[in-house]
């Protein structure tokens, strides 16, 4: 791993799903859901993976949790200051201790909590599974966790149905924190919530990160939310990372034409800024049959002959990592900088 501050280092990660056809279920092709993805996350840092549906952001996060088995690549996770393990090849038996350190927050707070369990049981379950057998000790810890997510301790004996979406998401976060994880994978944690509640959960995640020194891998499609939570952002398109940079750089000085188009498509909550949008032609490419060269070239308004033939590699341009043949010559437009109208 590159630096002692790095908690997670993903190197050349691939996940191909076979396409089977016919009576014998013969493999006739592959969906390259994740294709040669690399990134790192530091201690206390939030890296967001953004992109549209089918870009591979969720599959990437599921590989890190080993909910799916990667086809190739390494996922190095620092378990303590001197040691790291490769999650990608770890035998099943050795995954459990690791799962104390990597936890996840789900998108849907309605289906991710068991309706037959009390809040104390839901939050206490990871403690029980990991050997905290004393009920009193578990209840003490559950109380602390409820304080942490700013829910009254009195809620401990209630069932999930009594809670709103935002409160359920707090319960899900408390459960994720039960075993003092160092890395939290959050897949669209606020996209099912109403705006007024979404803001509360975003703030809570920022506070918890500062208090507990957590690292977040934040998977999201909503770029406005991403702006409020991330230190760095990785943009994915058809299984590959096309650009990685600090949040300010990605939003204000994008280097990849897809990032530019994505930013341009976000509606701005200000009627005085009805900008001329870059409306992309066509559809996202099929990861089972990606176009040759740069997968974005059929929709890219800057594409040249080279883009149709040669796959661009990630390279450093002014502090950003960009996979575009023309990244040094194009002057792309981001969102207007910070001044809130």
């Amino acid at each position: 791993m590159t630096s002692p501050q790095t908690i997670l280092s993903v190197e050349g990660l691939k996940k191909y799903f076979p396409i089977r056809r016919g009576l014998l279920r013969k493999v006739v092709g592959e969906v390259k859901a994740v294709d040669d993805v690399s990134f790192t996350i530091d201690r206390g840092e939030t890296l967001s993976l953004v992109g549209e549906s089918g870009c591979g952001k969720t599959t990437t996060s599921r590989c890190i949790l080993r909910a799916v088995h990667p086809t190739a690549g390494a996922i190095r996770f620092r378990t303590d200051p001197t040691r790291n393990v490769d999650v990608a090849v770890l035998p099943r038996a050795e995954l459990r201790p690791l799962r104390r350190q990597i936890q996840m927050i789900f998108q849907d707070p309605y289906s991710s909590l068991n309706p037959r369990m009390t809040i104390a049981d839901i939050i206490g379950e990871p403690l029980l599974v990991n050997g905290v057998s004393s009920l009193a000790a578990r209840r003490t810890r559950v109380g602390e966790l409820l304080d942490l997510v700013q829910l009254p301790r009195a809620y401990m004996n209630r069932f999930p149905h009594a809670f709103s979406g935002g409160q359920r998401q707090r319960i899900g976060i408390a459960r994720a924190l039960a075993l003092n994880p160092t890395l939290i994978v959050a897949d669209e944690p606020v996209s099912a919530l109403d705006v007024s509640v979404q803001a509360q959960i975003i703030n809570l995640m920022l506070d918890l990160q500062e208090r507990l020194g957590l690292s977040y891998l934040f998977v999201a499609h909503d770029l406005s939310v991403v702006k409020h939570v991330s230190h760095r952002v990785a943009v994915m398109y058809v299984g590959r990372i096309v650009e990685v940079a600090s949040t300010a750089t990605i939003f204000h000085r994008p280097k990849h034409p897809y990032t530019e188009a994505l930013l341009s498509a976000v509606p701005t909550p200000d009627p005085r800024r009805r900008a001329k949008r870059i409306v992309l032609e066509g559809e996202v490419a099929d990861p089972a049959n990606a176009p040759p060269g740069c997968a974005f070239h059929p929709r890219c308004r800057y594409a040249i002959e080279r883009c149709r033939q040669e796959l661009p590699r990630l390279a450093t341009v002014d502090g950003s990592l960009v996979a575009c043949h023309r990244s040094t010559e194009l002057g792309l437009t981001g969102v207007a900088s910070a001044a809130h109208a």
Partner: peptide, 15 residues
């Protein structure tokens, strides 16, 4: 309370 792409990175939202 709406998150915005125009906001400062990592700024807290009014709730």
């Amino acid at each position: 309370s709406i998150p915005s792409v125009l906001a400062e990175p990592r700024s807290r939202l009014a709730t």
